[in-house]
């Protein structure tokens, strides 16, 4: 079984956001780029399944410019077998999904993993769009995946409810936390091997987008925190009712 993990390249989650000169993007100077946290967990699970002999090949794909290659190399160093980069600066989730759908049409996968969202644009769209464009069976909010004799066991979790499903490929799974707990990191040997693993660059087939960012701003500053003495902690309940009027 072959698995595709869709990788989004995002600023480190502790990045302080500064608006760029064009007011439409953030200023990327000095930003540390990482694998989107959910994609990292998805990749970790894919590699665990490969180690267990249940997956034959783990491929990672990204739609992005050359800036994302460090992230793809890191995925290879972590253990992915090869990487595909569709060379374009995506305008929105539609552009990403339509280019990924071409990758999948050229080379079918039994399982496609997407994260529940990118931590930069918080779109939560690419997985479902891709499934829709390919008319593929898809399962959302996936927090567990196992494979036994070509059969997939998938765990979903929504609002404290748990569901176990059985299915078979081809299927697209939208991954949330729980799929793996500790993300796998590259080993020294992995880093050496990654240098010779294939990173294929394909040209974009579509640049169509459905949305366009008009302006990016910072949220209004928070007011000052009102401190209450610990001895008098019950007072906060009164303030919530009488001052903040939210209770």
């Amino acid at each position: 079984m072959k698995i595709l993990v869709c990788i989004s390249n995002v600023p480190d989650t502790t990045t302080k956001i500064v608006i760029g000169a064009d007011d439409k993007n953030i200023n990327t100077a000095g930003i540390q780029w990482i694998i989107n946290p959910w994609d990292e967990l998805a990749l970790t699970r894919a590699l665990e399944l490969k180690d267990a002999g249940k997956i034959s090949e783990v491929v990672v794909a990204n739609v992005g410019t050359a800036i994302t290659e460090a992230t793809l190399r890191k995925s290879l160093a972590t253990g992915a077998d090869r990487a595909i980069r569709v060379n374009t600066e995506p305008a929105d989730a539609w552009t990403v999904a339509s280019n990924l759908s071409e990758v999948v049409k050229n080379e079918p996968f039994d399982i496609i993993l997407c994260g529940i969202e990118s931590s930069d644009h918080n779109g939560s769209s690419v997985g479902g769009l891709l499934a829709g464009m390919l008319d593929l069976n898809f399962i959302s909010s996936v927090s567990g995946l196992d494979i036994e004799n070509e059969k997939l066991t998938v765990q979903r979790e929504i609002d404290g409810e748990k569901e176990i499903l059985e299915t078979q490929g081809p299927v697209l799974l939208v991954i949330q936390k729980g799929i793996a707990i500790v993300p796998r990191i590259p080993s020294m040997r992995g880093i050496m091997q990654a240098r010779t693993k294939p990173l294929q660059i394909v040209e974009a087939t579509s640049s169509e987008s459905m949305t366009e960012t008009v302006q990016v701003t910072l949220p209004p500053e928070k007011g000052k925190c009102k401190m209450i003495d610990a001895e008098n902690a019950g007072e906060v309940i009164r303030l919530l009712r009488e001052e903040a009027k939210v209770l």
């Binding site: 956001i17 930069d120 949305t211 960012t213 008009v214 302006q215 990016v216 701003t217 949220p219």
Partner: peptide, 14 residues
């Protein structure tokens, strides 16, 4: 909201 609330984006749905 984008960047988990660290910024806001005005977007046009075309």
């Amino acid at each position: 909201k984008i960047y988990s609330g660290k910024a806001l984006a005005k977007i046009q749905v075309k």
